[in-house]
Amino acid sequence: MWLGVWLTLLGLILGVIVGLNIPMVLTKAHAKYLSVAVLAALDSVFGGVRAAMEEHFDHTIFLSGFFANALLAAGLAYIGERLGIDLYLAAVVAFGVRLFQNLAIIRRHLVRGIKRG
């Protein structure tokens, strides 16, 4: 269990270092899609954490959800832009609500775990 946590942290740090050293910057128009994708990825990660706490974590579902959500969110934002609808707002709302739900469930699991001792 702890090995997994450490590996995950290592990956995160590695990713931060890589992200800091990417030699290009997106324009404002593209940054919108990336922001939605990031939100979707965050949602997937917290969903995965919650699944792990409820002990029904499946890493195939986790991986596919992670990438599919991110790409779909960005794609929907792009289509919305083409259609003249701020569709990325829908993605923001949906993923945001789910993010908060997941966080709340994780908090409850944590509190319950602490109480249980």
């Binding site: 590695l14 997937s44 991986l63």
Partner: peptide, 13 residues
């Protein structure tokens, strides 16, 4: 998990 964490880190930063 590590891969996902790494991609997340890249995206976030």
């Amino acid at each position: 998990l590590s891969l996902v964490a790494m991609i997340l880190g890249v995206l976030l930063v």
